[in-house]
């Protein structure tokens, strides 16, 4: 890879620039630029540092989970249980601390371990028992949510010490603390996908799983990792969420899986597998949040905003399909 000739590299570069513009990411950037221009005219409060940072704070949880979800969807899988793992971990954090008198630090760690184990349970069945991911996670969607209700007895845990709110409600180096989590995780996820054998393996699995197996890619290990990773990230997101809202509820994160999937799909990851990027997902995530926020600031109500988001989701894929057909052939 590194010892290729210079002209070759340049044409690769040109190709990749061309690809970037013609890919879903390009479409997204164009939509986003249009949206930002229009929204900044309709609301003077939209394009301000405070507002944008605040919006970034609100989208962190979905963003964190969208990273492993990108991997999963690239392999042609899906994880519907992330919202329930999110709720389950949040509840366990509060329950271990309040009811079981764990030190808060230990409760945070334990809740992340529990989220990770929940992901592992999905992973084991998906990889070794070969249950289709959508079915396995549909079942655990109900199961984990039920565990959250059952263990907490629907009680919420509140009254956390002050330092705990550092993560969700305060700033670190001038930026809301949780955004640092998202930045670090995104860089990690991006490098992993774009620059390592693991990343290439993920694409290979999505394109042709059997082929990937024959070409010596450790498919099982990779698949195992991505579902565990999803559990882990859901738990981390749950911890940040708990710190942001200062309480744990058994119903938190309900329906979150759809927000996550929408961001990933909008970001150009093909639901049938084989293609997608981390930066695409982040663009999708940001676009969704900007639309929600900008429309609201411009006086559009929540119900109409939902409609617009639905239309944008369909349209962006439509435009992308059109471009692929028109220019790629």
């Amino acid at each position: 890879m590194t010892t290729q000739e210079a002209p070759q590299e340049r044409s690769n570069l040109q190709l990749s620039i061309r690809n970037a513009f013609l890919g879903q990411e390009g479409v997204l950037v164009v939509i986003m630029v249009i949206a930002v221009i229009v929204l900044s005219f309709t609301s003077e409060n939209f394009l301000t540092v405070d507002n944008l940072l605040n919006q970034a704070r609100l989208m962190t949880e979905v963003g964190l989970i969208a990273l492993p979800m990108t991997y999963i969807i690239i392999t042609g899988g899906i994880d519907l249980s992330v919202g329930s793992i999110f709720g389950f971990s949040a509840v366990m954090l509060g329950w271990l601390w309040k009811e079981q008198s764990f030190p808060l630090e230990a409760a945070i760690l334990a809740s992340i371990v529990i989220g990770t184990l929940s992901g592992l349970l999905n992973a084991l069945f998906i990889v070794y028992v070969r249950v289709p991911p959508i079915i396995m996670t549909l079942a655990t969607l109900a199961l984990y949510r039920g565990m959250a209700y059952g263990i907490s007895q629907a009680r919420s845990a509140r009254g956390y010490p002050d330092w705990f709110f550092q993560f969700g409600q305060r700033d670190f180096l001038g930026i809301p603390t949780q955004i640092w989590f998202l930045i670090v995780a995104s860089i990690f996820a991006w490098i992993l996908l774009a620059r390592t054998p693991f990343g290439r393996g993920i694409y290979a699995i999505g394109n042709n799983e059997i082929g990937a197996r024959f070409s010596g890619i450790p498919v099982n290990r990779y698949l195992l990792f991505i579902y565990v990773f999803a559990g882990f990230m859901s738990a981390v997101a749950a911890f940040l969420f708990t710190s942001r809202v200062s309480t744990t509820r058994a119903d938190s994160g309900t329906g979150m899986e759809l927000d996550v999937i929408a961001a990933v799909v909008l970001g150009g990851t093909s639901i049938v597998g084989g293609s997608g990027t981390i930066h695409g997902t982040l663009l999708g995530l940001v676009l969704l949040q900007l639309l929600k926020n900008g429309l609201s600031l411009s006086g559009v109500k929540g119900d109409a905003t939902i409609v617009v988001i639905g239309v944008v989701l369909i349209l962006s894929i439509l435009i992308n399909n059109y471009i692929q057909k028109r220019f790629r052939q």
């Binding site: 919006q55 609100l58 969420f241 609201s296």
Partner: peptide
């Protein structure tokens, strides 16, 4: 969670 988003948006607006 959605309510919080509404509050933030309207305060900004």
């Amino acid at each position: 969670d959605d309510q919080i988003t509404f509050i933030e948006n309207y305060v900004t607006q």
